[in-house]
Design a protein around this nucleic acid. Structure first.
Lengths: 112, 112
DNA sequence: TTATGTTATCGTAATATTGCAATATAACAA
DNA sequence: TTGTTATATTGCAATATTACGATAACATAA
């Protein structure tokens, strides 16, 4: 990515960007959607479900975990993953900023 | 980013990932937040506002425009940018999938 | 015309991401 | 112990992103 000037932005802006970045890959969207469908599953289930190799899935899970989008519970020799809703709520709150007057600012913009 | 197997995922999953990826940088979050604060502004305003050079801002705006997160209106020699709410609504609808029973799946997960 | 203001594009260096084979690690069974 | 199963880590090639100086493209003014 080249140098990213994260230090120049607020913690909140960096946190939101980090969550969005973690969601910025179709495999990770597919993982999130599979997790919500089955409630919780292990890495191996995702390897069967998605057209990617096990190390790749594991790496994507790590990415999602780093952003707090999922949690992993160790269950014997496997790890059970599920969604961490708090983070999704946080992201939704960011999006709610953009709910202004619906009559305004929809199909045009000017600096007037 | 290396080869991204986008072809293996649905159009919808790719679209969501693309929007999220566009939001996956603090400068672009800052741009979106500035745009909502002032309703609409030109590139030069953002150059004054953010600690990045003009070509960098322009590139970030292109990224946001490509994901349909903003629109640009040419006004004389400048371009007026504003938020494209439809895309944010689309992203919010994706997040709404994750609003299951609040008593379930909050602080634990198991494959039981 | 020339000059100025505004934005986009090009080129490039530094760095990050993606994907996977190979391998390591860990839990458990036999 | 050995073997099996499940997941994580390492190492690497291919590719993408980030940032910015230089410059191009454009509208407008003088």
């Amino acid at each position: 990515m080249g140098i990213s000037k994260t230090a120049y932005f607020s913690d909140r802006q960096n946190k939101i960007a980090n969550i969005a970045k973690a969601l910025g890959h179709p495999a990770r969207i597919a993982i999130m959607e599979h997790l919500i469908k089955v409630d919780a599953c292990i890495c191996g289930d995702l390897v069967d479900e998605l057209p990617l190799a096990q190390p790749t899935i594991s790496q994507h899970l790590k990415e999602l975990k780093q952003a707090n989008l999922i949690k992993g519970n160790i269950e014997g020799s496997s790890v059970c993953y599920c969604i961490h809703k708090d983070t999704l709520v946080f992201l939704k709150e960011f999006l709610n900023q953009f709910n202004g007057d619906p009559k305004q600012n929809i199909f045009s913009c000017s600096k007037s």
